[in-house]
Design a protein around this nucleic acid. Structure first.
Lengths: 115, 115
DNA sequence: GGTAAGTGCAACCAGGAGGTTGCGTATGAC
DNA sequence: GTCATACGCAACCTCCTGGTTGCACTTACC
């Protein structure tokens, strides 16, 4: 039972690892914030105001795109990035599941103690 | 306005970076899952079933503890780790905020287009 | 057509993350 | 008291990540 539950959460959870990892960086979380307020923006736009190189920003954006949090759209000579909500929503659902699992575990513990 | 919103999210978001980073690893997400189902567990218990060394697991647990997701409690010669829900809940609130911000941005965009 | 702007690609570098091994130490069991 | 268990610490290794620089290429603009 425990093993089964772990498998369920484990399989579902594995897909979220890249998303968590993508957001586990200050620069990238900042980029997501910017894009979430105002989308789309070009790489140069996103580089302005940052102390990093365009290349660095570009790499971070690639990581975010790999995680599905962001999508690149070529417009002429510019590359626009736009925010996608879905992975974040999926992550929230996953966290809800974790939360639920935890409550259940507490319930089992309580029942065990009171027995 | 945009800058202010970014500052707000940025400041609040910065605190969540370690939590995201902590969960952005398959091994650690697995540990969290195990601890969330059944808490507390000792390091040796958590090492069983994994192909990694006790030391590796121990390091991962230290990372999780640093992020506040888990807490270590010394019991005799054993070190028990127990799950904490709060950082996950905080993260969910933060993601809700991001979601809200995004909806707002969409609203602004729609209003702008329809004008 | 010439020039500047916006990117992509590749090489390169430093540092940190993930992992192991070896050893020391405290605690429980007998 | 002795021995096994559970753990911490430190050194070490490898590889990936974050970041830069230099150059080539496409596209807009005049």
């Amino acid at each position: 039972m425990s093993a089964r539950a772990q498998t369920i959460l484990g399989k579902a959870g594995r897909a979220h690892v890249p998303v968590f990892a993508a957001l586990g960086d200050e620069t990238r979380l900042g980029l997501v914030t910017r894009l979430c307020e105002h989308s789309p923006q070009s790489i140069t736009q996103l580089t302005d105001g940052s102390r990093l190189t365009r290349q660095a920003i570009s790499k971070h954006l690639a990581v975010l795109e790999h995680a599905g949090i962001v999508e690149s759209i070529r417009v002429g000579r510019e590359c626009h990035y736009e925010f996608h909500l879905k992975p974040i929503d999926d992550m929230k659902s996953y966290l809800d599941e974790v939360s639920r699992q935890w409550d259940e575990a507490l319930g089992r513990l309580k029942a065990f103690v009171e027995r």
